[in-house]
Design a protein around this nucleic acid. Sequence first.
DNA 1: GTTCTAGTACGAGTTGAGTCGAACTTAGCA
DNA 2: TGCTAAGTTCGACTCAACTCGTACTAGAAC
Lengths: 127, 127
Amino acid sequence: MPSSAHTISAVRELPEPADLPAPLPEPAPAELRLETVLGALSDPLRLFIVHKLLLESERFDHPCSWLGIDRPKSSLTHHYKALREAGLIRQRQYGLERRSHVRVVDLNDRFPGLLDLVAAWEPPAAP
Amino acid sequence: MPSSAHTISAVRELPEPADLPAPLPEPAPAELRLETVLGALSDPLRLFIVHKLLLESERFDHPCSWLGIDRPKSSLTHHYKALREAGLIRQRQYGLERRSHVRVVDLNDRFPGLLDLVAAWEPPAAP
DNA sequence: GTTCTAGTACGAGTTGAGTCGAACTTAGCA
DNA sequence: TGCTAAGTTCGACTCAACTCGTACTAGAAC
């Protein structure tokens, strides 16, 4: 079952197995900047990615292709990199796959309420 | 006294005198889009404007020059217009002055918690 | 009237971001 | 060994946005 929007701000800890691959380079929690995070979320495609990861990830990492976005791979790489460098997602390498999840704990700690807004977001009606 | 960051999300109503000049064109509350609002706030100068208006406005409108930003007038016009068209501020014409205030009620209603993040924002250290 | 002033409008220069194709890298597998 | 698949890297293109100077408009005060 997808996480409810009302529970996301309550997430403060996520126990993780200890034998995961190391995360790709990312900003430390203290380095997160509100203007950078908001800028990363102002792109509709990236907002969609974070929204979907938040609501349907069930605490598992997902590869870039999991979202079913119909864009060239180089475009997706660009947006995932932007999200990771802004501090919104964490990425780990599993063999060929690079899996991502939202940095819920860090973001709730630094910007309480932000992820609730993303979770409550409604994508614009398709044309 | 400036509004506390902890009270901003509680603001749901602001009684206003009935004889104010009409607001300049702005999006209706139902038309506010999260991605647009976040994009407007992702510019450091605009984030600074909204932050300062929030914390020091004391429910009064303020002219563009009030913030003491050292930029050409045409640049300020550009950013105030961007904020108004994104739905973040309301502007009214008082003679020669165009005064602005944050649309606290509308934004709290549509994006609860967002203004608290802006109020809690700390400007980057001056170089 | 004239002058001053707050702010807009317009246009140009520059920069940065999004988009994408093509070539490349690497892990897994037959 | 070679093939396939996931994703990156690079470069080029386009377009939107930021910046700002100049000219302009409109209210206020004299």
